[in-house]
Amino acid sequence: MTDKFISIEGIAKRYPGAGGGTTAVFENLWLSMPRGEFCCVIGHSGCGKTTVLNILAGLDAPSEGAVIVDGQAISGTSLDRAVIFQSHALLPWRTVLGNVAYAVTSKWRSWDRAKVKEHAQTFIDLVGLTGSEHKRPSELSGGMKQRVGIARALSITPKIMLMDEPFSALDALTRGTLQDEVRRICLETGQTAFMITHDVDEAIYLADKIFLMTNGPGAVLAEVVENPLPKDRGRTDLHRHPLYYALRNHIVDFLVSRSKNFAAEKPDHDPRNVPVVLIGKPGLTIAADAKPEPPRETSWPGLSRPSTSS
């Protein structure tokens, strides 16, 4: 974790509480991400995940601390950081093309109409919406709307994509396809992505690193879990990987019990040096506890190759 493309340094978010005091959603939160990595944050509702994302996006300001992106402290929103909203947030009076073009013209003000259209079309094609350019959001299904949201975010070629539970409002089948799409696009373009999710499997499939947050108020970043699965994992045989269940159980255990009692269990938790959990690597207690099933019929070309992940 030497390359800190995104570095959240000691941020806190406090709201005025009842009786004149303040309630802190989280205090002294440190978090960093290298370039080109896909990171997911998992935690229960109310732990301040969305607040962290909004602060990263610049939509919200921390009560304390700073966020540094690519060597510069951020202040406010930026076209370098694209947000994919949970509710897709498309402008309903614009067509698919109009929505994407709106983002494109916001970034490149001097571009003429044809160039904007061509650029927007590239990203509409990329998310597989070719042929629906002139439809309005109301004519699209939930999955297609979120595709437009993704195309809009990608079209401004951001340094970071910020996603706030982008697939939580979708049905399981659509969610799966869109996860595939997002994974493909992020791998192809080397996009740095920060995503909030409730879905453990989604995190395992998409993320290189999973941040586990304890319950709020007073939430802390408890652990950073490195995803041991190879980069070229596929959604269909994910669960056959020998380390899949160890990883999954670790996260689920955290969500079920440890997220509640974390402060009591680990009073000496240092928010600046959050433990990194490497599942399946020797020397870690957590890996010793886990009893991965012996690999059955696996189709894991990634296992035999040297890992391409950084």
């Binding site: 610049g58 939509l59 929103t77 076209l79 950081r81 947000v83 909203f85 402008l91 709106y102």
Partner: peptide, 10 residues
């Protein structure tokens, strides 16, 4: 959310 879209697009 529409305002936020405009804000993130500067």
């Amino acid at each position: 959310e529409w305002i936020n879209v405009a804000r993130t697009l500067e």
